[in-house]
Design a protein around this nucleic acid. Structure first.
Ligand SMILES: [Mn+2]
Ligand SMILES: [Mn+2]
Ligand SMILES: [Mn+2]
Ligand SMILES: [Mn+2]
Lengths: 218, 218
DNA sequence: ATCATAAATTAGATTAGTCTAATTTTTTAT
DNA sequence: ATAAAAAATTAGACTAATCTAATTTATGAT
């Protein structure tokens, strides 16, 4: 079994390596985990020994299949627990990440499989992030940033790229919820501010910074 | 915050000290935790420093109010999670202890309070053990061992003192479930074997060893 | 190609929690 | 009261995960 620390390294490496096909840099991982570079070096040695990562000298490192499988399972657990916390316990989407950071490390295949059934095999977590199935397969979804859409575009708000509580509570405040259908009424030339029509209801205006954190699906 | 290890020490000390009004012995705690006596000595020093326990030289030790409060909260979490696992996820009562041993260490007051509400403020866990409320108060219950009852006695099966999966699955097999009303048909003189009538339904015979692990309430 | 900067590794310590072996203290039995 | 047995503590080591400071390696810019 892997320690919490090791699991957190695996998850962080996974997220970094998904961002490109290159190897992950020690310094990027150190920053992601909030530890010193020397600590990363020490841990990577152990993980390489356990065949969880592959080094390519001065080209960074990547997870082995074994490492990736563990990482994806932790992400599965994290997201299923987030669904549970929001759907069953009534937490807000801005409150669940920290708790899921703990719950994701509970070791029990039976538990996570029963939880998945109990929740009805959800395909996405409360932030719109896809939940891999028990085999580690993610449902492919094709969404784009609102900031990349043009005037007149109509689509569904399906996810966020900024998961900070402050951003999420801001969305609550302006009345934007996952699943809402929105259309782009206008885009301000000067600063690319977006004015949106929310499903017949109200009209709201959001900064480009916000538009750059909202995922839209056709 | 306290580490998992420290929380496990607190819980184990609590359970030992409840068994008598005396101080707890280093050796008993070592046995309960499956560690060496020397490890216990080392940990007790740290816990005394943190005002979690009181030493009374060569009279053992006991939890301070602070230590007791933390211990009871962990027990509350353990038992609430067990209820969740059985009632919501459909686990058997013989399968939940190990998972709850992990879940009891999740740190979030909001989580445990919402879980309590979600479960309908249960008063007992799947094994009949009382669940303390948010203030650490246990509902007083007066039950006795089946082995201490006499022929003709009628009562309700409300708890077990043996929590081992093998005992619990044995009870499943013979059809004894928490809440069942039972009456003592006869007690074999030779070996104190109990023959029980289950709520009009079947009649079963259990050894004295079994009768000694079943809690009955008037 | 050389020098400056950035990235990575090494060396040496620290803390939590554990171990074994040795020693001391306490309890129990004669 | 004394010796034997049991319980507790101390001493010294180990592992996991971290740190700082020093050193080495790699990258990049002139
Ligand atoms: Mn999250
Ligand atoms: Mn999420
Ligand atoms: Mn239990
Ligand atoms: Mn229980």
């Amino acid at each position: 079994m892997n320690s919490f620390t090791e699991e957190n390294y695996l998850k962080a490496i996974y997220k970094l390596q998904e961002q490109s096909s290159e190897g992950v840099a020690n310094s990027d991982l150190a920053k992601a985990l909030g530890v010193q570079s020397a600590s990363v070096t020490a841990m990577l040695k152990k993980m390489a020994q356990k065949k969880l990562i592959n080094y390519e000298k001065s080209k960074g490192f990547r997870l082995t299949d074994k490492g990736k499988q563990i990482a994806v399972n932790i992400i599965r657990k994290h997201r299923l627990w987030e669904v549970f916390l929001v759907e069953k316990l009534g937490f807000g989407w801005d409150e669940v990440h920290e708790i899921a950071e703990q719950l994701e490390h509970i070791h029990s295949e039976a538990l996570i499989n029963r939880l998945d059934v109990y929740l009805g095999h959800p395909k996405a977590d409360p932030h719109g992030d896809p939940i891999p199935n028990a085999n580690g397969i993610f449902a492919k979804s094709k969404s784009i940033l609102l900031s990349e859409t043009e005037k007149g575009m109509q689509g569904k708000f399906v996810g966020v790229t900024d998961h900070s509580p402050s951003f999420l509570t801001y969305l609550d405040k302006v009345g934007l919820s996952l699943g809402d259908t929105i259309s782009v009424k206008s885009i301000e030339d000067f600063d690319k501010t977006y004015t949106l029509q929310l499903k017949g209801k109200k009209e709201i205006t959001v900064s480009n910074k916000v538009a750059n954190s909202l995922l839209i699906a056709g």
